[in-house]
């Protein structure tokens, strides 16, 4: 039994994040910068059907809730608000690990329409991890007040992901948002997001590393985008390897047996 053999791996992984998967609801992640009205979107979508707990092993609050659309029930997970997913803080690591390993069926990124550039930075990092991303352009009323005009169609075209303008405080656009979630989950639309093109020196290095990873890590490719993993390795991010170790290689059935390996492999996962 190895990584490749774990067909039920996804559900097991989701349980690692304290997600109740007994109902087999599609899992929708809600990401976004701080102060973008993310929790208003969360409340708007789930209403009172929500509860809070902790992210496993961490004293960071986790909120999850349910919503129904077209007779289907969805579970919405509110990720911590972060500017980036580059794992500089516990919050960033939680958000990254969830998108990377729990593999939500769709990820909504809430962005502040009055400050698109900073918010796109996060959007572009999320689309590196997962295809099924929806950009929720919130605070459209504020943007209008500030005479900021956004070409939604152009944005959609450039990012190659669905873009839904909302005013979450007034409930505007939330139905459209649910509809888009529904469409993605039920494969009515298939998303292939635009990915950041890196400078040649980085792309070259990544290229080389991907080859290495492909031959050396046969199993992991199914779970993680190797291009993305190479980028993390290149920038010296050790937290990703720690997360892989924590999540993939922690299964009761072989935990005890592999323990020796962890101690002797000589890698410092810090």
């Amino acid at each position: 039994m190895g990584l490749t053999a774990r067909s039920s791996g996804l559900n097991l992984l989701r349980e690692n994040f304290n997600i109740d998967y007994s109902k087999k609801n599609p899992i929708i992640a809600l990401a976004g910068n701080p102060n973008t009205g993310k929790s208003t979107v969360f409340n708007g979508l789930t209403g009172l059907r929500q509860h809070t707990g902790n992210w496993p092993g961490k004293t960071v609050t986790q909120a999850q809730g349910n919503f129904r659309y077209q007779g289907q029930e969805f579970t919405l997970i509110d990720l911590p608000g972060t500017y980036s997913l580059l794992a500089n803080s516990t919050e960033e690591r939680i958000a990254r690990d969830f998108i990377c390993f729990a593999r939500p069926d769709a990820t909504i990124v809430v962005a502040d329409a009055t400050n698109l550039e900073r918010n796109l930075n996060l959007v572009l990092q999320v689309t590196e991890l997962t295809d099924n991303v929806i950009l929720c352009l919130n605070l459209m009323d504020e943007a209008e007040r500030k005479n900021i005009k956004i070409d939604v169609a152009g944005l959609k075209n450039d990012l190659q992901i669905p873009v839904v303008p909302t005013v979450a405080r007034d409930g505007k656009g939330l139905k459209e948002l649910k509809n888009t979630v529904y469409d993605i989950v039920n494969k009515n639309i298939v998303v292939h997001p635009y990915r950041v093109k890196y400078s040649p020196e980085i792309e070259n290095a990544v290229e080389e590393l991907v080859q290495e990873l492909r031959t050396m890590l046969t199993g992991i490719e199914k779970y993680i985008n190797l291009h993305w993993l190479s980028l993390r390795l290149l920038e010296g991010d050790k937290t990703i390897m720690r997360s892989i170790k924590d999540l993939f290689l922690k299964d009761d059935s072989f935990e005890t047996k592999t323990e020796g390996v962890v101690q002797t492999d000589g890698v410092n996962y810090i």
Binding site: K149, D151, V196
Partner: peptide
């Protein structure tokens, strides 16, 4: 490399934002 990665992402965000956002009337 890391500096460059962050710069590239921000550069990309900047390009897309400036293409699709207009501030009218100041």
């Amino acid at each position: 490399l890391r500096d460059q990665i962050v710069e590239d992402i921000y550069g990309c965000a900047e390009r897309i934002a400036s293409k699709n956002v207009r501030i009218e009337g100041g």
